[in-house]
Amino acid sequence: MKAAPFLWTALGLVGATLARFAVADAAPGGMFGATLGATLALAAIAVLALFLAMVGFARGEGWFARLATPALFGFLLLWLWEMLVIGFAVPFVLLPPPSAIARAFGAHLALLTQDFAQTYLHAVIAGYALGCGAGFLVALAIDRSPFLKRGFLPMGNMISAMPIVGIAPIMVMWFGFEWPSKAAVVVVMTFFPMLVNTTAGLAEAGAIERDLMQSYAARYGATLLKLRLPAALPHIFTALKLNSTLALIGAVVAEFFGTPILGMGFRISTEAAKMNLDLVWATITVAALAGSLSFGALALLERAVTFWHPSFRGSS
């Protein structure tokens, strides 16, 4: 790779940092102080340099270039957010700057950890495991009956497409304010995608492969274990990945309906009402990290387990 994009990146990062200090200096006295010109010049240099760096990296191939371009783009967006909010003195209750969100993140780390434990470690994981497990088992159970499959499959598809989070108030009534009611919402949300995808996956094994098993006089169980379940894995992982996102959404939104004094959904809704937007954004950051890291972990697991699938073959 050529050196130019790296130089532009360095220049852009230095310019952006200096501009950040300049704008903080300039802001308090009215809108912009005496250093308006300097701020604008530094900001212009930073934007131009980062843009050229991105253009340079976007031309390149390889994992580093593929990572550097979106990383710089993300940085540019965060920095623009910071600069505009400070430069135009946007009220804190409308949009706090990223630096304030980072400070809130540090200051409330203990609270955020408790919320995370309440929502993710309890509701999400329990609900996800139960919902996915039940969906998988029911799919196995109805596998031998084409009649039941034909009945359950369209219904599963139908229910998957519905606003299931709406059952949250009912679950709160049934299971109380604590995390089990949120886990129940997650169970219902994750059950149907797993049922539908596992059933579809079990139908995936080709006719020739089945004929081969038939020629070995393999029993139902052997065919299931040696052929149909491995062939179903890509579909099962599709459901696992989809459900990891659904589970987090279900748990957070269920907390909007009523909760004890902990949880990410609770934090977001109450602190938003109290205008503590920095803490709200910090909680959203936690939720985003939890969501993308879970998904990423599942994607890695999928790659390790279904490396033989055509969708992975070319890339390694």
């Binding site: 979106p70 710089l72 783009f73 996102t245 977001i268 938003a272 969501g291 993308s292």
Partner: peptide, 27 residues
């Protein structure tokens, strides 16, 4: 440039519980 810089974020945001921002946006 858009493909390389923006698209990864669009894909990544599908793994994030975007719905969580709802209360804040409304407020």
């Amino acid at each position: 440039l858009l493909d390389r810089s923006l698209m990864p974020w669009v894909i990544a945001s599908q793994t994030v519980p975007v719905l969580a921002i709802a209360p804040m946006v409304v407020v």
